Computed example of a mutant assay.
Amino acid sequence: MPSTEKTLHFVSSALVTAIAVGLLGYSMSDDWTVIKMECATNSNNGTATITVGLFNGKMDRFFCPVFGNSDADYFQVIPELMKTTDSVPAVLQGLVVCLLALCLLFSVCSILISLYNSVSNPYENYLGPSALYGFSSLSACLSLVAIIIFALNTILTSMGETLVQNFSQNIPVSLSNKKTEADIGLYLLIPYIVLSLLAIVCIYTYQRAAYKHKREQQRPTDDVPKEIMMY
């Protein structure tokens, strides 16, 4: 049976990762960014505000492109982006969703491995601490990549313009002064990354202490003169 110290460290790692999974799940269901831009036609000037999440979005228009577009329009992000010939925003949005789904899977694997190590003493194989290091590191790295891809998709591509054009009723509009602001869903990935790394720290702290304790037990034997050890 594992020691109490080992059990506490691995259970703490599982608990930290479980909190991270909860944050990631909430993040994926919330809004990620708000895109604002000015909208102009031959006769009107207005504004459009697009709230975008991973799966769903909301379009708030005022005089964009004509009077009477002040009601909010709700839509599914990826299907709406796929309506145009420019497939880059839709592909990048789908890539972000896939990366975060992998993060969820790897975090769940980290929880299971932590709980398994807390009640048993597996050998140093794929079920040991090395696997937990790998899964937690992948979760942190992939979520960071997802943040970067999403930011590039909203800032550098025509995601916002594409969504406004889709709701413009085929009326030509001129869009300018685009402003992009991050929302709570994107910010929640930061504590998710921190907690994933903290799960690694919990196990590394235990392994370092166990190695130090093992070396201290071996030291008296190492200090005995060779002449005495011969007898």
Results as ranks from 00 to 15, higher is better:
residue 224 V to A: 12
residue 64 C to D: 00
residue 51 T to N: 04
residue 110 S to M: 01
residue 171 I to C: 14
residue 144 L to C: 13
residue 44 N to K: 15
residue 55 F to G: 10
residue 172 P to M: 08
residue 59 M to D: 04
residue 212 K to E: 14
residue 39 C to T: 01
residue 22 G to P: 03
residue 50 I to Y: 01
residue 190 I to A: 13
residue 136 S to Y: 01
residue 138 L to M: 15
residue 106 F to R: 09
residue 15 L to K: 02
residue 226 K to E: 11
residue 51 T to P: 00
residue 127 L to T: 10
residue 218 Q to Y: 06
residue 136 S to C: 10
residue 49 T to D: 04
residue 221 T to V: 11
residue 76 Q to G: 02
residue 17 T to K: 02
residue 140 A to F: 03
residue 231 Y to M: 07
residue 13 S to F: 01
residue 58 K to A: 15
residue 33 T to Y: 07
residue 87 S to W: 11
residue 11 V to S: 12
residue 144 L to Q: 11
residue 16 V to C: 15
residue 223 D to S: 11
residue 110 S to D: 02
residue 152 L to P: 00
residue 229 M to D: 04
residue 154 T to P: 00
residue 194 V to C: 11
residue 219 R to F: 09
residue 87 S to P: 13
residue 138 L to Q: 13
residue 54 L to P: 06
residue 126 Y to A: 14
residue 215 R to W: 08
residue 125 N to S: 12
residue 18 A to Y: 10
residue 155 I to A: 11
residue 1 M to P: 14
residue 91 V to R: 09
residue 107 S to H: 05
residue 77 V to K: 02
residue 179 K to A: 11
residue 50 I to C: 01
residue 9 H to D: 00
residue 204 Y to V: 13
residue 158 S to C: 03
residue 154 T to C: 12
residue 92 L to V: 07
residue 221 T to F: 09
residue 90 A to V: 11
residue 190 I to L: 15
residue 13 S to L: 01
residue 124 E to I: 08
residue 36 K to Y: 08
residue 166 N to T: 03
residue 158 S to L: 06
residue 93 Q to Y: 05
residue 48 A to M: 00
residue 112 L to C: 07
residue 15 L to H: 00
residue 165 Q to W: 06
residue 78 I to K: 14
residue 78 I to D: 13
